Amino acid sequence: MTPTPTEHVLLARVARNYYLDDRSKSDIALELGISRFRVARLLDTARREGVVTIHVASPTGYDTELSVRLQEMFGLSHAVVVTAEDDGPDTLRQLLGRVTGEVLHGLITREDVLGLAWARSLRGVAREGMAIAPCPVVQLTGALSGPDGSDVLELVRSVAKASGGSPHVFYAPLVAPDAASARSLRKQPEVRHAAELADKVTVAVVGIGAWEPELSTIYDMVEPAAQQRTTELGAIGEISGAIIDSAGKPLATPLSRRIIGVTGDQLRRIDTVISVAYGRRKAPAVLAALRGGLVNGLITHTDLARALLDTATEAGLGPAPIRSSRER
């Protein structure tokens, strides 16, 4: 039944006392001379009749609604969606890197081993100087531009220095000229040591690229024949060098044997894998990575988040169970 005017006033009084004045149900019941259970029923009625409406606001710079929807749809342990204007990829990468640093600050403990793979968006982590709990910081991939390691090595060292942890780096390219060269590089003591530590990593941060021009640093740096052959074998994207198909399954390709870095099987064994991705055109590759269970965390922006949810809905995907990870 529709409440009478007097009842509406009572609903408003109870709601104001409870929600705005922060009074307990027991105190309200005592003042009004009614039971605490009736107070609870009145509060339920106030919401049902629209006397009380609840709005969950996102803090400035974040879209919490999209973040929650991503968690529920893909079973993610961690999801953060930033609201970003179209200021260009460099600005977006810096923003995502800063947010990644903030996530790690709240996630990493002294008992962790942090693994960092190559991703252009992660430069902002080091630039921000976000200090995390001191722990070993391990390089998971070779360098992008060559054996000088001007990118990923600097990232690992900067994060370790900010936290007081120990950096574990090696000098090797991300992609070797051929499989034989890659095998030789993997035998080097520093590379072998990093590979052994990769199996002890508890938290990893990776990037996701689509297997298309300008959407993957690896795609752009290999020769056309390798690009085409990898495409023919079903590649849709790569997770910091681990090549995947449309189902998120790691692919064993001739190019894979040339890549110096973490493998899909290693990613699957890591407790928490935070992926950083941007660009709406990468949606199919990011969707594959999420569906394949190789990552259980995503830091992204509103445009890509909406594209992922739209694509998943069109494909008839339902909410996934949360991938297990340690309680923190």
Rank of each mutant, 00 (worst) to 15 (best):
A252S: 14
T217L: 12
A84T: 06
K25E: 14
E65F: 03
G292C: 06
L42C: 11
H78V: 12
S121Q: 10
V201P: 14
L153C: 12
R47A: 10
D112H: 03
D22Q: 04
I322A: 06
V52K: 11
D303C: 01
A172G: 12
G241P: 07
D265K: 11
D245M: 04
S325R: 12
T230G: 08
P147S: 13
V125C: 06
V262I: 15
V99K: 06
G297A: 09
I218C: 00
A289T: 01
G241R: 04
A307T: 04
V191N: 09
A143D: 15
D90C: 04
R280Q: 14
D199G: 09
V175P: 08
R69G: 04
R183K: 04
A277S: 12
G264L: 05
H105T: 09
V152S: 11
P59E: 03
P213A: 15
M73S: 14
S184Q: 10
L197P: 10
M1F: 00
I274Q: 11
E128L: 11
R120G: 14
G248T: 07
V14G: 09
G88F: 12
Q94D: 13
M73T: 15
G124Y: 01
T6E: 15
D22F: 01
I208G: 12
L215C: 06
P250N: 03
S325Q: 11
H301D: 14
T6G: 14
S216D: 04
P89W: 06
T202N: 03
V103Q: 13
V222S: 08
D27F: 01
G75F: 02
S58H: 03
A133Y: 08
V113T: 14
V51W: 00
T91V: 15
A79M: 08
L30G: 05
V68G: 09
G264Q: 09
A182D: 00
A133T: 03
G261T: 12
S325V: 01
A29G: 10
S246C: 09
T83K: 13
R306E: 14
L114S: 01
A172R: 05
L114G: 05
V52T: 15
D44I: 02
A283H: 12
K187W: 00
V125R: 00
G75R: 02
